[in-house]
Deep mutational scan, measured.
Amino acid sequence: SEYETMLTEIMSMGYERERVVAALRASYNNPHRAVEYLLTGIPG
């Protein structure tokens, strides 16, 4: 799925699956924002 592709691409940058899933959830599946959250911390 498109979601799995995003997940895999972000994980390939060296992040753990659960952190990527949390970041995508926080960003409403916006991959650019999710990466930003992984770099700066997930808000909330």
Rank of each mutant, 00 (worst) to 15 (best):
residue 13 M to S: 03
residue 17 R to S: 04
residue 23 A to T: 01
residue 18 E to N: 08
residue 43 P to Y: 09
residue 5 T to Y: 10
residue 20 V to S: 02
residue 14 G to W: 06
residue 7 L to P: 00
residue 17 R to G: 03
residue 25 R to P: 01
residue 14 G to F: 05
residue 31 P to I: 13
residue 13 M to K: 06
residue 43 P to Q: 10
residue 19 R to M: 14
residue 19 R to V: 13
residue 13 M to L: 13
residue 35 V to H: 04
residue 44 G to H: 12
residue 29 N to S: 05
residue 41 G to P: 05
residue 25 R to I: 12
residue 39 L to Y: 05
residue 26 A to Q: 08
residue 3 Y to D: 04
residue 14 G to M: 03
residue 30 N to Y: 04
residue 21 V to T: 06
residue 9 E to I: 14
residue 34 A to L: 04
residue 19 R to Y: 09
residue 21 V to I: 14
residue 27 S to Q: 04
residue 9 E to V: 12
residue 23 A to S: 03
residue 30 N to L: 04
residue 12 S to T: 07
residue 5 T to L: 14
residue 24 L to W: 01
residue 29 N to Q: 06
residue 31 P to Q: 09
residue 4 E to M: 11
residue 18 E to D: 11
residue 16 E to K: 05
residue 5 T to E: 12
residue 12 S to H: 08
residue 32 H to F: 12
residue 5 T to P: 09
residue 2 E to G: 09
residue 13 M to R: 06
residue 31 P to W: 13
residue 16 E to T: 12
residue 37 Y to G: 02
residue 20 V to N: 00
residue 4 E to H: 09
residue 28 Y to T: 08
residue 13 M to Y: 07
residue 32 H to R: 10
residue 39 L to F: 06
residue 23 A to F: 04
residue 30 N to E: 08
residue 8 T to I: 14
residue 36 E to W: 11
residue 20 V to Y: 06
residue 3 Y to I: 05
residue 11 M to R: 02
residue 23 A to C: 03
residue 8 T to N: 14
residue 18 E to F: 07
residue 8 T to D: 09
residue 12 S to I: 06
residue 24 L to C: 07
residue 33 R to M: 15
residue 11 M to F: 04
residue 8 T to R: 15
residue 7 L to H: 00
residue 41 G to H: 11
residue 39 L to P: 01
residue 15 Y to L: 02
residue 28 Y to W: 08
residue 5 T to V: 12
residue 31 P to L: 14
residue 35 V to M: 13
residue 31 P to D: 02
residue 21 V to C: 08
residue 44 G to N: 12
residue 4 E to T: 08
residue 1 S to C: 14
residue 27 S to Y: 06
residue 35 V to W: 06
residue 28 Y to K: 15
residue 26 A to R: 07
residue 16 E to D: 13
residue 38 L to M: 04
residue 14 G to Q: 02
residue 7 L to G: 00
residue 4 E to S: 07
residue 29 N to L: 08
residue 26 A to V: 08
residue 17 R to Y: 12
residue 14 G to I: 05
residue 4 E to D: 09
residue 35 V to I: 15
residue 32 H to G: 11
residue 2 E to N: 11
residue 3 Y to N: 04
residue 44 G to I: 13
residue 1 S to M: 13
residue 22 A to R: 07
residue 42 I to H: 08
residue 22 A to F: 04
residue 34 A to H: 01
residue 6 M to F: 08
residue 36 E to N: 06
residue 31 P to S: 06
residue 32 H to W: 11
residue 19 R to E: 15
residue 7 L to Y: 03
residue 39 L to S: 09
residue 32 H to K: 14
residue 8 T to A: 15
residue 20 V to P: 00
residue 1 S to T: 12
residue 9 E to K: 13
residue 21 V to F: 03
residue 4 E to C: 15
residue 26 A to F: 08
residue 23 A to Y: 02
residue 13 M to I: 05
residue 2 E to P: 10
residue 39 L to T: 10
residue 4 E to A: 08
residue 21 V to E: 13
residue 9 E to W: 15
residue 19 R to F: 09
residue 33 R to E: 09
residue 40 T to S: 12
residue 31 P to G: 06
residue 33 R to D: 10
residue 44 G to F: 11
residue 21 V to K: 08
residue 12 S to R: 11
residue 12 S to A: 14
residue 20 V to K: 00
residue 12 S to W: 05
residue 1 S to I: 12
residue 40 T to D: 09
residue 27 S to A: 15
residue 27 S to I: 06
residue 39 L to M: 14
residue 44 G to L: 13
residue 29 N to V: 04
residue 9 E to T: 13
residue 42 I to L: 11
residue 22 A to K: 08
residue 12 S to M: 11
residue 9 E to H: 13
residue 2 E to V: 11
residue 32 H to D: 14
residue 34 A to E: 01
residue 38 L to E: 00
residue 20 V to Q: 01
residue 42 I to Q: 08
residue 38 L to N: 00
residue 2 E to Q: 11
residue 2 E to F: 11
residue 38 L to R: 00
residue 20 V to R: 00
residue 28 Y to R: 14
residue 13 M to Q: 06
residue 41 G to N: 09
residue 26 A to M: 08
residue 33 R to F: 10
residue 14 G to V: 07
residue 8 T to E: 13
residue 39 L to A: 10
residue 44 G to T: 13
residue 36 E to F: 11
residue 19 R to L: 14
residue 21 V to W: 03
residue 14 G to C: 06
residue 6 M to V: 07
residue 17 R to Q: 06
residue 3 Y to M: 05
residue 1 S to H: 11
residue 17 R to V: 05
residue 6 M to L: 10
residue 24 L to D: 00
residue 15 Y to V: 02
residue 19 R to N: 09
residue 31 P to F: 15
residue 43 P to V: 11
residue 2 E to I: 11
residue 3 Y to L: 06
residue 15 Y to T: 01
residue 29 N to I: 03
residue 23 A to E: 01
residue 21 V to L: 09
residue 32 H to Q: 15
residue 24 L to F: 02
residue 21 V to Y: 04
residue 16 E to P: 14
residue 29 N to R: 04
residue 15 Y to H: 05
residue 7 L to F: 03
residue 42 I to R: 07
residue 31 P to M: 15
residue 16 E to R: 04
residue 33 R to H: 08
residue 40 T to H: 14
residue 38 L to G: 00
residue 7 L to E: 01
residue 4 E to Y: 11
residue 25 R to H: 12
residue 6 M to P: 01
residue 44 G to Q: 13
residue 16 E to L: 06
residue 41 G to S: 10
residue 2 E to H: 11
residue 40 T to N: 14
residue 33 R to T: 11
residue 20 V to L: 03
residue 24 L to M: 08
residue 38 L to F: 03
residue 3 Y to F: 10
residue 10 I to P: 00
residue 27 S to W: 05
residue 34 A to C: 03
residue 43 P to I: 12
residue 24 L to Q: 00
residue 27 S to R: 02
residue 25 R to N: 12
residue 12 S to G: 12
residue 40 T to K: 11
residue 9 E to Y: 14
residue 36 E to H: 13
residue 17 R to D: 02
residue 11 M to G: 02
residue 43 P to D: 10
residue 14 G to D: 02
residue 5 T to R: 15
residue 34 A to S: 02
residue 43 P to K: 09
residue 23 A to V: 03
residue 12 S to Q: 11
residue 7 L to W: 03
residue 14 G to S: 02
residue 26 A to I: 10
residue 32 H to I: 15
residue 37 Y to A: 05
residue 35 V to L: 15
residue 25 R to W: 07
residue 11 M to K: 01
residue 11 M to T: 05
residue 5 T to M: 14
residue 39 L to I: 12
residue 24 L to N: 00
residue 30 N to A: 04
residue 27 S to C: 12
residue 6 M to Q: 04
residue 21 V to S: 05
residue 15 Y to K: 01
residue 23 A to R: 01
residue 38 L to D: 00
residue 22 A to N: 08
residue 18 E to V: 07
residue 8 T to H: 14
residue 44 G to Y: 09
residue 30 N to G: 02
residue 41 G to Q: 11
residue 29 N to H: 06
residue 7 L to K: 02
residue 26 A to Y: 08
residue 32 H to C: 14
residue 43 P to R: 08
residue 37 Y to M: 13
residue 7 L to D: 00
residue 43 P to A: 10
residue 37 Y to E: 03
residue 20 V to D: 00
residue 37 Y to F: 12
residue 36 E to Q: 11
residue 12 S to K: 13
residue 13 M to G: 03
residue 5 T to K: 15
residue 18 E to C: 14
residue 5 T to H: 12
residue 1 S to Q: 12
residue 34 A to K: 00
residue 11 M to A: 04
residue 15 Y to W: 10
residue 11 M to Q: 04
residue 37 Y to S: 05
residue 14 G to L: 05
residue 8 T to L: 15
residue 4 E to P: 03
residue 9 E to N: 12
residue 25 R to E: 14
residue 36 E to Y: 12
residue 3 Y to E: 04
residue 40 T to W: 14
residue 23 A to I: 04
residue 28 Y to I: 08
residue 42 I to C: 13
residue 12 S to Y: 07
residue 27 S to D: 02
residue 15 Y to G: 01
residue 2 E to K: 11
residue 4 E to F: 09
residue 9 E to L: 14
residue 17 R to F: 09
residue 32 H to M: 13
residue 19 R to W: 10
residue 27 S to L: 05
residue 22 A to T: 06
residue 43 P to N: 10
residue 38 L to K: 00
residue 20 V to C: 03
residue 15 Y to C: 02
residue 20 V to W: 03
residue 12 S to P: 01
residue 5 T to C: 07
residue 28 Y to L: 15
residue 35 V to S: 03
residue 5 T to A: 14
residue 32 H to P: 06
residue 10 I to M: 07
residue 6 M to W: 11
residue 42 I to E: 09
residue 35 V to E: 03
residue 29 N to G: 14
residue 33 R to N: 07
residue 43 P to G: 09
residue 10 I to R: 00
residue 23 A to K: 01
residue 11 M to N: 01
residue 3 Y to A: 03
residue 28 Y to F: 14
residue 23 A to M: 03
residue 18 E to K: 07
residue 44 G to S: 12
residue 10 I to G: 01
residue 10 I to F: 06
residue 22 A to S: 07
residue 44 G to R: 10
residue 6 M to H: 06
residue 35 V to F: 06
residue 31 P to V: 12
residue 10 I to W: 03
residue 27 S to T: 10
residue 40 T to E: 11
residue 38 L to V: 02
residue 40 T to Q: 13
residue 5 T to I: 13
residue 1 S to N: 12
residue 17 R to L: 08
residue 7 L to I: 15
residue 39 L to E: 13
residue 18 E to I: 07
residue 18 E to M: 07
residue 31 P to C: 12
residue 44 G to E: 13
residue 21 V to G: 02
residue 3 Y to W: 11
residue 35 V to G: 02
residue 10 I to K: 00
residue 32 H to V: 15
residue 16 E to Y: 04
residue 29 N to Y: 10
residue 41 G to T: 10
residue 26 A to N: 06
residue 34 A to I: 04
residue 44 G to M: 12
residue 16 E to W: 05
residue 6 M to T: 05
residue 24 L to S: 00
residue 6 M to S: 04
residue 43 P to F: 11
residue 20 V to I: 06
residue 17 R to M: 08
residue 42 I to D: 08
residue 28 Y to G: 15
residue 33 R to L: 15
residue 5 T to F: 10
residue 10 I to D: 00
residue 11 M to H: 02
residue 34 A to T: 04
residue 3 Y to K: 03
residue 19 R to I: 12
residue 42 I to M: 11
residue 38 L to Y: 02
residue 40 T to G: 11
residue 33 R to Q: 13
residue 30 N to F: 03
residue 40 T to F: 14
residue 5 T to Q: 14
residue 6 M to I: 10
residue 20 V to M: 02
residue 39 L to H: 07
residue 41 G to M: 10
residue 17 R to K: 09
residue 32 H to N: 11
residue 25 R to F: 08
residue 23 A to G: 01
residue 5 T to D: 11
residue 1 S to G: 10
residue 15 Y to F: 15
residue 34 A to P: 01
residue 15 Y to Q: 01
residue 28 Y to C: 15
